[in-house]
């Protein structure tokens, strides 16, 4: 079993900034792999090094068993790349754009048009690329990356700037792409996106991989505090504290912001029974830890989208 990507100890420095500081990762064939991190964490640089656009200062990389640097024209038809900003030619329509890119790989116009249909752009095929909406441009960009049927696909923040509906549509597309057996590597700003799409994620900050695992495992691994909340006004803050203490329920915090009474605990059962006894279950919500909590714990800072 060959891994789609193996990277070992990649380092890249820009002037005083160590953009990538010893990243090692392995992406299995067919895997949907996410690289997660705040702005400036080194995600894009890492991706560019993996793609073979940049030569790292240090480190060894293999893509599909080949070195991406120096430029290897045997490797290029087997990978597909979508950049953060769409890279289109001036003054071309969507159809002309994808047909042009497809032709570089010896792929004919029929297949290019089929790809356009697949991303739902057939109706906008005659629209100039500079007149397209953000979502359309992203979809075209992805279509251009996929027209030649690559085994390994790199996507750099594909859903940034899209409205929720467009994001969801794109997620479906990305899932399908991966479902066909393609290996997908994605960087993202959005934790929910990584949680929904990725088989495994690496959390990056300051050029380093802090943690790698399935989203579920990462969430489980952290101190899994459960947040129980109900509408406020049903029970006083003081009395709930007393009752919880009396019932022997361990809590991390009990707060009431005037709208919601929130209780953070590692043992939700006694908390819930206290609330039930008091008939204070209106607006009940129980929420486990999310990737966001993982992120907060790992990087020690709020997520900056």
């Amino acid at each position: 079993m060959t891994a789609a990507i193996t990277a070992d100890g990649i380092r890249q420095r820009y002037g005083d900034v160590q953009a990538v500081d010893g990243v090692s990762l392995t992406v299995e064939t067919g895997e949907f792999y996410g690289i997660l991190g705040p702005n400036g964490a080194g995600k894009t640089t890492t991706l560019e090094i993996l793609e073979g656009i940049r030569k790292p200062d240090e480190g060894r990389i293999e893509l599909l068993g080949m070195a991406p640097w120096p430029r290897n024209r045997d490797l290029l038809p087997r990978i597909g790349v979508q950049f953060q900003a769409s890279a289109f030619f001036n003054k071309l329509t969507a159809r002309e754009t994808i047909r042009t890119f497809a032709s570089f790989y010896g792929v004919g116009p029929k297949r290019a048009d089929a790809m356009l249909e697949r991303v739902g752009l057939t109706d906008s095929a005659s629209v100039m690329t500079d007149k397209m909406s953000g979502g359309q441009a992203q979809r075209l960009s992805i279509a251009c990356a996929l027209a030649h049927d690559p085994e390994l696909v790199f996507l750099d923040e594909p859903t940034t700037g899209l409205d929720p509906q467009a994001r969801r549509n794109l997620w479906d597309l990305l899932r399908d792409i991966n479902g066909e057996g393609r290996t997908v590597v994605l960087t993202t700003h959005y934790l929910d996106e990584a949680e929904i799409l990725c088989d495994r994620v690496s959390v990056m900050d300051h050029g380093k991989v802090l943690k790698t695992g399935t989203p579920a495992a990462l969430v489980r691994e952290i101190d899994d505090t459960v947040r129980v909340s109900v509408e406020s006004g049903q029970i006083g803050l003081g009395s709930v504290r007393e009752l919880l203490a009396a019932a022997g329920a361990e809590t991390a915090s009990v707060e009431d912001d005037g709208a919601t009474l929130a209780i953070a605990t590692r043992a939700p059962a006694p908390v819930l029974s206290v609330l039930a006894e008091q008939g204070a279950l209106r607006g009940l919500e129980v929420r486990g830890a999310t990737l966001e909590d993982v992120f907060l714990q790992l990087t020690g800072r709020e997520y900056r989208a």
Partner: peptide, 28 residues
């Protein structure tokens, strides 16, 4: 989908594609 993490142990996907698609290797 969703089993990629375990795919390491389950050799479900051949590393080399068998399709003779138009985008074969050998770009020259």
């Amino acid at each position: 989908p969703g089993t990629g993490a375990q795919a390491a142990e389950a050799p479900a996907v051949p590393a080399q594609r068998t399709t003779g698609g138009p985008a074969g290797t050998g770009g020259a």
